[in-house]
Simulated assay, not measured.
Amino acid sequence: MEGVYRRRVPDPGGELHAPPGRSAAARRRAQADIAHACERMSVDPGFVRLRRRFAIQAGLLVAAFLGSYMSYLLLSAYARDFMSIRIAESVNVALVMGIGQFLLTFVLAWAFGRFSERAIDPLAAQVRDRAAGGARPHPAARDGADGAAVRP
C-alpha cells in the first residue's frame, strides 16, 4: 500500500497501537534496526562517494542552466541592441536564445541521464547490494567456463 498515509492514534494509555500481529516492542526493535542500518550506510565509503558524485553532477548541471538563463535575462534586459540583431527576416538573436533555452534544458536532461547510467547507477547498485547484504557479482564480471564469476 504505497503512498497510503496511516495515522497512528494513541490509545488511552499513551502507547501507539501496534499493527496486527506485532507488539509495540517488536515495532520499536524493527525501527531501531532500520535506524542502525541507515547509520551504518551513511558512513560507508561507497555511499559517501555516491552522494558526492551525485551532488557534483547535479551542481554542475544546475550551474550550467542557471548561467545560461541568467545570461539570457541580463542580455534581454541590458543589451537590447544586441538582442534585436536580425538573423533572418523575422528571427532575431533574442528569439534564437529563447529557443536555445528549451534546447539546453533537453540537452542537460539527456546528459544527466547518460552520466547517471554510466557513473551513478552502478555505484548505487553496489551500495544497495551491500545494504541488503547480497553478494551479486559486479556488472563487469563475466561468467567463466564453469559458470563462476570471473573478473576481467
Rank of each mutant, 00 (worst) to 15 (best):
A125R: 05
D44K: 00
P10T: 04
Q101L: 15
Q101C: 08
I34H: 05
G147K: 00
D129F: 00
M70A: 15
V4Q: 11
R151K: 09
F47W: 07
G133D: 01
A148C: 09
W110M: 09
L123E: 01
R6V: 15
R128C: 11
M70Y: 11
A24P: 10
G147L: 03
N92V: 01
R130E: 14
A79C: 12
L123P: 00
D129A: 07
G134K: 08
A148G: 07
C38G: 11
A124L: 12
L75T: 06
P139E: 00
P12E: 14
L75M: 13
M83T: 03
A124W: 01
R49V: 06
F82I: 13
F65V: 08
R52Q: 13
P139A: 06
R22C: 10
E2P: 15
A149C: 02
V9T: 10
S71T: 13
H17I: 14
M97D: 07
E89D: 15
L108K: 00
R7Y: 05
G3C: 06
V93I: 13
A135I: 06
P45A: 09
L60T: 01
R130L: 10
F106E: 05
R49A: 15
G113Q: 07
R22E: 12
P12K: 07
V91D: 00
L16I: 07
A30Q: 13
R27W: 11
F54P: 00
G100M: 04
R27T: 15
G147M: 03
Q31E: 14
A140N: 07
M70N: 12
R40E: 12
A64W: 03
A109W: 06
E2I: 08
Y78K: 04
L75H: 03
S68P: 04
R136E: 14
R53T: 15
H36R: 14
I34S: 09
S90D: 14
N92P: 02
M83Q: 05
A149Q: 02
F112I: 00
A109G: 11
G3Y: 02
A131L: 15
A145K: 06
A145S: 10
R114E: 14
S84D: 12
P122G: 05
A18F: 00
A94E: 01
Q101Y: 01
L95C: 03
R151V: 11
R80Q: 10
R49I: 06
L95G: 04
A79M: 07
S116G: 14
A63K: 01
N92R: 03
F106V: 13
L75Y: 03
L16C: 06
A125S: 07
R86Q: 12
N92Y: 01
A149E: 02
A124N: 07
G113N: 10
I87K: 00
A26H: 05
Q57L: 15
L104D: 05
A35Q: 07
F115Q: 10
V48I: 09
A18G: 09
R86F: 04
H36M: 13
Q57V: 02
A131K: 02
G59F: 04
A119S: 11
R22G: 04
R7D: 06
A26Y: 01
D146V: 03
R86T: 11
H36N: 11
V91A: 03
F106A: 15
P122M: 01
L95I: 09
